[in-house]
Design a protein around this nucleic acid. Structure first.
Lengths: 256, 256
DNA sequence: CGAATACTTGAGGCTTTTCAATAGGTGTGG
DNA sequence: CCACACCTATTGAAAAGCCTCAAGTATTCG
């Protein structure tokens, strides 16, 4: 039932790991100077996970934080009946593992959806380094702050009461987090199954399927299996009743 | 519509502010030594807010973090239709204001439910102090980590599909966060209205009212206006389908 | 190519919402 | 102190939305 943990050294790597990285602008070292960046890079261990494998397990010891380099992941817990509850999806540039900080052990499972690459950072050493590098300290706080906002978006999304509003909000957040521009929306790849999407939104898979079909019929999106294209962003925003602003904390706006 | 901001110097205060504080074991300085604690205390400004007043406003500048000393608060945003969406309730010992870290401006409103007292801490100076005091640095991370867990609990709660499960989970979390013991449950005071509770759980107020009545009829709780007494914790856990463990990060278990 | 999995579509039923009316509680002013 | 207004909470009946069950189609993987 529970997938085996499989990790291996990721293909990304090297001394200037971060400075070459394509997600640098939205990642932890975004605004760091060369020296600070080098200090951080020295801590990073690239790791990779195949579809369905666990990066960490609920109740396992918390030793590392992770930055998503490529791919997508889900974090989940199971209740007493053994039913999976998906707590969040995680995309490149985002920080993962924060659920372990409070108690010293992880409070959920982190599982790779497709193949994904992450940067693993020893938490204790990161804290020590942050004391020497104020820029890094600020940046860590910013990244954590962004995770709060993502959780709050999730909460707001689940509160949207007509199910189609929930779905419309999800598509918006997905577009932002996978780096879509509002003007020229590219095809989004849904890394998760309909079941996972439904679980995330607290809906039935059949409902998700039906509502995706309806949005397509109304020419707001085009959807074909895992490919999703936003056709009419304006109407998508109208349906969702909320225009999510830009994601904070990417390099251009990361002055704080 | 939006309440005026009213703040005044809180009645709690003094040089050994924290060391006398009744919520110390679950608060930021819980495990700090005397010197560290003194450094932190020097930064703290006690403030108090009356029912319905705002501690901070959506989009206002982020300069301070807060620790709840007494009372209870809600954080909320409004969507394009002007409808309030409650993102969380906040109780003594908890850290508030984290929504401002990522962008440098708050992303929601923080409003006092009843009368409440908070400890206001300048964020920039806290960061500087944390660099000198590793114990404080760890403690800040722990407190933030706890807020992640609370958000995840909220998400899991909203995913519980029969509404009565959601309500049962809420009552459990409320009992924990207001310092109830499992063995001798005291009367809990619901600081929020039924409307606010319903909004938080993404339910209709009428549904909340009906389900509270049902839980009472089944002799699992006793409820009278804002007073709520848990009668049968075991069955409450059975209904909710989840036994929430102890809240991490209180002083006894805050070694990490 | 066959089996297993993922997705779609339809029909009926049930939970929750909505609408509406009533009861209870709180605060103000006479 | 009581009457009144206002707000909050409760309760009922009807409607709607979403879920469950069920069948069928498509896709992936061995």
């Amino acid at each position: 039932m529970v997938p085996e943990r499989i990790s291996r050294i990721g293909s990304h790597g090297g001394a200037d790991l971060c400075r070459r990285c394509k997600v640098l602008p939205m990642c932890l070292p975004a605004t760091l100077g060369q020296a600070e960046c080098a200090g951080l890079t020295a801590l990073i261990e690239p790791v990779a996970y195949d579809s369905g494998t666990l990066v960490y397990r609920d109740r396992s010891a918390f030793d590392h934080l992770y930055l998503v380099h490529s791919g997508a992941l889900k974090s989940w817990t199971s209740n007493v009946n053994g039913e999976m509850q998906i707590l969040g999806f995680h995309f490149p540039g985002e920080m993962v593992g924060l659920d372990g900080i409070a108690s010293g052990s992880h409070q959920c499972n982190l599982e790779s959806l497709g193949h994904s690459e992450l940067c693993r950072i020893p938490y204790a050493r990161l804290g020590i380094l942050a004391r020497e590098l104020p820029g890094l300290q600020r940046r860590i706080a910013l990244m954590m702050g962004r995770e709060f906002l993502l959780d709050h978006e999730h909460i707001a999304m689940m509160s949207a009461r007509p199910a189609i509003e929930r779905l419309a909000l999800f598509i918006q957040t997905l577009a932002r987090r996978t780096g879509q521009t509002v003007k020229h929306p590219q095809a989004i790849v849904l890394e998760m199954t309909r079941w996972e999407l439904a679980n995330f939104l607290a809906l039935a898979t059949e409902t998700v399927s039906r509502l995706l079909a309806e949005l397509q019929k109304r020419k707001i999106i085009r959807v074909d299996r895992r490919r999703l294209q936003i056709v009419d962003m304006q109407r998508l925003i109208e349906i969702s009743g909320e225009d999510l602003g830009d994601l904070p904390c990417v390099s251009s706006s990361a002055a704080g």
